[in-house]
């Protein structure tokens, strides 16, 4: 049994509809949801449009406040943290990174700047005496930049993209697939141990899905735990270690990718 990195208990969230102009009342988007994610596994959330998958991610990384329930996160040192009530940057610094639905890069920044944004503010383990040495920060910065570059280069090499030649390209000018790879590379170089990936395959050609699957393998190899939202069932079957079906605000069914996808298909009538 692998250790748990994320443990959600009794999570609930309702939105008031009046704000969206759809009359009075409330929509219970997440209700009494329980979910746990194991270390270095791909855990997929299946659900139809509007089931509340993105909302669940918003609750986990602090974009939205939960009405009730608890979200416990165990960082890479095994220490537990209660996430409800923390701000997004705080949650991110504990070790949770997220890829947003759609575009998830800084469009006006170069590739290399995007990758550097995925790194935290220098988390130095040096004593202040060492830091006082002249040139310390410059040396530290250079070392960090080199390490980052090597790591990112290795990643892009697998997709026959030469980082050295493209590092100064502005991310907004890249193709959708390249932007997706850049986002995934940001996940690789980030120190986060839990990654929330919201539809990494959307907008891509079926030929390109193998690439994303390969990137997920790479992330797992880096000991990252992944919570994945994906609509492409073949992709889900191929990549998930565990899978959960979200409906009516809570998990209706959990199991292996194949089991849950089979159930989902009969449910959706296809």
């Amino acid at each position: 049994m692998k250790p748990i990195v994320l443990d959600i208990k009794g999570l609930s969230k309702q939105f008031s509809l009046s704000a969206k102009g759809a009359g009075k009342g409330h929509a219970q988007v997440i209700s009494d949801l329980n979910l746990s994610v194991n270390e270095a596994e791909v855990c997929t959330i299946l659900g139809s449009n509007g089931a509340g998958k993105t909302t669940l991610f918003n609750l986990i990384n602090g974009f939205t406040r939960a009405d009730s329930g608890s979200i416990r996160f165990f960082d890479s040192a095994g220490e537990g943290h209660e996430l409800t009530g923390l701000s997004t940057p705080h949650i991110a610094r504990l070790g949770i990174n997220r890829m947003l639905q759609g575009i998830s890069v800084f469009g006006h920044l170069s590739m290399i700047d995007n990758l550097q944004m995925a790194r935290p503010v220098l988390a130095s383990r040096h004593s202040w005496l060492e830091r006082m040495k002249p040139g310390f920060y410059r040396a530290e910065k250079r070392q960090a930049a080199e390490k980052l570059f090597v790591q990112a280069e290795q990643f892009f090499d697998q997709f026959s993209i030469c980082l050295a030649a493209n590092q100064h390209k502005i991310a907004g000018t890249l193709s959708t697939a390249e932007q997706r790879l850049l986002s995934l590379c940001m996940m690789v170089v980030s120190p986060a141990s839990l990654l929330l990936l919201d539809e990494p395959c959307s907008g891509l050609h079926t030929d390109q899905l193998g690439m994303i699957a390969k990137a997920l393998e790479e992330l797992k190899r880096h000991q990252k735990s992944i919570l994945l939202i994906e609509h492409n069932l073949a992709f889900v079957e191929a990549t998930s270690d565990t899978c959960h079906y979200l409906e009516g605000g809570h998990i209706r069914l959990s199991g292996s990718g194949n089991e849950v996808v089979r159930h989902y298909k009969t449910e959706q009538g296809c």
Partner: peptide, 19 residues
């Protein structure tokens, strides 16, 4: 660079752990 990133995509900026 951070300032550029913040104006570019505020949510992503927060996700990067910066305030």
């Amino acid at each position: 660079r951070n300032l550029k990133a913040l104006c570019d995509h505020e949510l992503l900026y927060e996700i990067s752990g910066r305030s």
